[in-house]
């Protein structure tokens, strides 16, 4: 079985800083990591490989440094890594990103037929959860989003059964290969790489594709040009004018503070009081 996993290198959003005046992002010193959601996709792919054999190719579109993220994926046991990188991709939104990734997957497929594509649920920088569905549509693959478990793969019959998180429940879906799965978080735990895999990853050459190598001829579909959405403004969340009314009580005894609060709260919001009192105890 040949599985492609799409991963993205993202800035560790917990460490992002914003320039107080210009509201631009200060990137210096912000470490780049593999999008955490994508690791669940990768681990699931590796488990399928462990069970059914085959190979796992990791794919990313990004700047040259994104090679680090791919190499990290190789240490966990991915067999091959492809970095699609070209200045022409800059400024891509999700539509343009899925175009480029779909083209690259088509290219990979030409070498060795792809049975399954994985993406993460979403990225922590874009947060859109759109790229996975986008790739599936462009490649005309069956789309399975928010998958929490791959229950069964029948390679001979080319069938696959998964559990998918739906609103208010779990769907059990069956589909045909090839298909695209976006993997839900918290569904598995990434393995600890062996020394052999560390060596293999360190030695493995990441394949670097520019626009042409990725099989993209139409530049109007990629980068800023191929992106219907544009950011017109970046701004800081508005500071609210309303500051909390501080509850004070003689001596600040917890009991007195509590009573003062309840008094204020219920006098000004009688409906709230009624609702609380009316609910079954």
């Amino acid at each position: 079985m040949h599985i492609v996993v799409c991963i993205k290198q993202v800035p560790d959003s917990a460490q992002i800083r914003v320039h107080p005046v210009t509201n631009t992002i200060m990137r210096q010193g912000v470490p780049a990591i593999v999008n955490p959601y994508d690791l669940f996709a990768l681990e699931e792919a590796l488990r399928l490989k462990d069970r059914h054999g085959g190979r796992v190719t990791v794919l990313t579109m990004g700047p040259p440094q994104a090679e680090d993220a791919l190499r990290k994926c190789l240490t966990f046991g991915a067999d091959e890594a492809i970095l699609v990188t070209d200045r022409a991709f800059a400024g891509a939104d999700t539509l343009a990103t899925s175009y480029a990734l779909a083209a690259a997957i088509r290219n990979i497929d030409r070498d060795a037929a792809v049975d399954l594509v994985f993406t993460g649920k979403q990225t922590i920088d874009g947060d859109t959860a759109q790229v996975g569905p986008g790739i599936a549509k462009r490649l005309d693959l069956q789309l399975l989003t928010y998958v929490s478990r791959v229950e069964q793969v029948d390679i001979a019959q080319r069938r696959l059964r998964v559990q998918r998180r739906a609103e208010g429940g779990v769907q059990v879906l069956e589909t045909r290969l090839p298909c695209l799965i976006t993997m839900l978080e918290g569904t598995n735990e990434m393995r600890f790489a062996s020394m052999d895999n560390m060596f293999r990853a360190a030695r493995c050459a990441v394949r670097i594709w520019d626009r042409e190598a990725a099989g993209i001829s139409d530049v109007s579909k990629i980068g800023l040009k191929g992106s219907p959405t544009v950011v017109s403004k970046v701004f800081a969340p508005q500071a609210r004018a309303r500051r909390a009314e501080l509850i004070e009580a003689e001596g600040d005894a917890p009991r007195d503070l509590a009573l003062t609060l309840i008094n204020k709260l219920f006098t000004r919001n009688p409906k709230l009081r009624d609702a609380i009192v009316a609910q079954p105890s």
């Binding site: 759109q130 986008g134 928010y146």
Partner: peptide, 18 residues
């Protein structure tokens, strides 16, 4: 989960922004 699944697919099919 339903809305995002559908929105991403429809936007790509229509080649429009989302």
């Amino acid at each position: 989960t339903q809305g995002r699944d559908l929105a991403g697919s429809v936007a790509t099919t229509l080649k429009t922004g989302l």
